[in-house]
Design a protein around this nucleic acid. Structure first.
Lengths: 146, 146
DNA sequence: GAAAGTTGATAGTGACTACTATGAACTTTA
DNA sequence: TAAAGTTCATAGTAGTCACTATCAACTTTC
């Protein structure tokens, strides 16, 4: 269950990841389109998944199927991760930042123009990593709010 | 749309509120059981609803039916409201506080024993009021996280 | 004291969600 | 270069979600 000893090195093809998690390939791609997951991509556009990604997929599956939160609900939860408090972007940039101003999509679903996040890889960003396991969003808030 | 000029005085019976919002009486009671709403209650146990409650009901209906977030998803979103940062309870009390430690229910669904919230009326608490209109949870986080 | 309204429970339903299956075109790898 | 694997799109489906309808018992209010 611990994510500490899980590697983030891209290892598995999508079909392998699907087998490990017990879902169809299409389902994994759907999660990606819905903004719940960012796979590593080779130059050939082939997706690769790490141990951490597999853990994340298991978490998503659990939350969607057992805990009965819909995909839209999960997206809204992810959208509440306070990215501005994590990456410490400039407060003057925030006013123009779409991710800061909407609450419907997580920041990594948004194209960042002319701000701190431009050109950064969301896959390895701490904001995205805040949801590597299942209980983590509120914990992040606890860190940030005294 | 503004909640500033909406009164929080209990005015409407449940059937009146249902008519105003356009749902059945049963639906309003369901939202209450699900923890999405706290109505005023007379000594006779009769529920009464304010303008603010009606606004909140409209918001719930919109979020559930148009934006397609399920009730469970909404509950999880409400559970992320950082109550500890709003009511400023003692940090030594937080460790034992169920509301602080779980992320599945909003704090007002939890029975508060031996802490800052014991005996306080959640209906008028600022934590509960953080979701009087539709865009407010993230705004609350923005206030609290620099 | 009767009408109107509320509570609480059960049964039933239309719509939608998350998912699988399938297939064609393309790319990588042995 | 052939086999294996991947991408992308469409069609179809089991299960469920949010809701309404209905009914009996109780309470409030005029």
């Amino acid at each position: 269950m611990s994510t500490l000893n899980k590697s983030n090195t891209p290892l598995y093809t999508i079909s392998m990841a699907a087998k490990l998690v017990g879902v169809s390939v299409h389902t994994i791609r759907m999660y990606e389109i819905e903004g719940l997951l960012i796979p590593f991509k080779k130059e050939s556009k082939q997706r690769l998944y790490s141990e951490l990604d597999v853990e994340r997929l298991r978490c998503l599956r659990k939350v969607i199927n057992e805990e009965r939160i819909g995909i839209e609900g999960i997206r809204r939860l992810l959208a509440l991760i306070p990215c501005w408090g994590i990456v410490k972007c400039l407060s003057k940039d925030r006013k123009k930042c779409e991710a800061y101003n909407i609450a419907t999509k997580p920041c990594w679903m948004i194209n960042h123009k002319n701000n701190y996040c431009t050109g950064r890889d969301c896959r390895v960003c701490e904001v995205y990593q805040s949801f590597s396991n299942c209980e983590s969003i509120k914990n992040k808030l606890k860190e940030l709010i005294a």
